[in-house]
């Protein structure tokens, strides 16, 4: 199995690793960098538990090879909090009970982050479509939708 050197920036920090060509980006993030907030929930790009930001856009990291992230910048859930404070989305998820088992939460947060960048003042219906690539088995989504809506307000007010 051929190996490659990849260099990428994760949550602002540069990393270089020697990887097999077939290594999935999720495994690089989890097994090599030990950032375990990025989860696996399926084998078929359906659940979104593995969502990270790749150069600012939400991607399902289980569907990319690590080598495809060479030279790119990645944000995982561990990189969301800024200056020691929670990101407004993180705070809103707690405030509005937008999580239960927490397994979908990192992916859900990052999808929401990307979505709000594109649509900072969404309706609830738009939020539902915005997170439709992420499955949650616990919450029945309503509280997630409310949390994202509240975070959008907060982010607009805080200029984030």
């Amino acid at each position: 199995m051929s190996t490659h050197t990849v260099t990428l920036t994760v949550n602002g920090q540069e990393h270089t690793a020697q990887v097999e060509s077939r290594l999935l980006l999720t495994h690089l993030i989890r097994d090599v960098l030990r950032l375990t907030g990025t989860h696996f929930g399926c084998d078929t790009t359906n659940c979104g538990a593995c969502t990270v930001l790749l150069d600012g856009a939400a991607v399902k990291s289980c569907t990319l090879f690590a080598v495809q992230a060479n030279g790119k910048s990645i944000t995982t859930v561990e990189g969301m909090a800024q200056n020691g404070g929670l990101h407004p989305l993180q705070a809103a998820f707690r405030e509005h009970h937008g999580l239960q088992c927490g397994f979908c939460t990192p992916g859900m947060l990052l999808s929401a982050l990307d979505f709000l960048k594109k649509n900072p003042d969404p309706t609830e219906e738009e939020i539902r479509w915005g997170i439709s690539g992420n499955l949650c088995r616990c919450t029945g989504y309503l509280s997630i939708v409310k949390a994202i809506k509240a975070a959008a307000k907060e982010m607009a007010a805080g200029g984030k």
């Binding site: 950032l35 375990t36 859930v77 993180q90 998820f93 927490g102």
Partner: peptide, 21 residues
């Protein structure tokens, strides 16, 4: 009451089975 467990989950600091190395 807001949930105690959320503090770790929203920061990616849950400790699920696959996170055990």
């Amino acid at each position: 009451v807001k949930r105690k467990e959320d503090v770790r989950f929203i920061q990616g600091k849950g400790n699920y089975i696959e996170d055990i190395y």
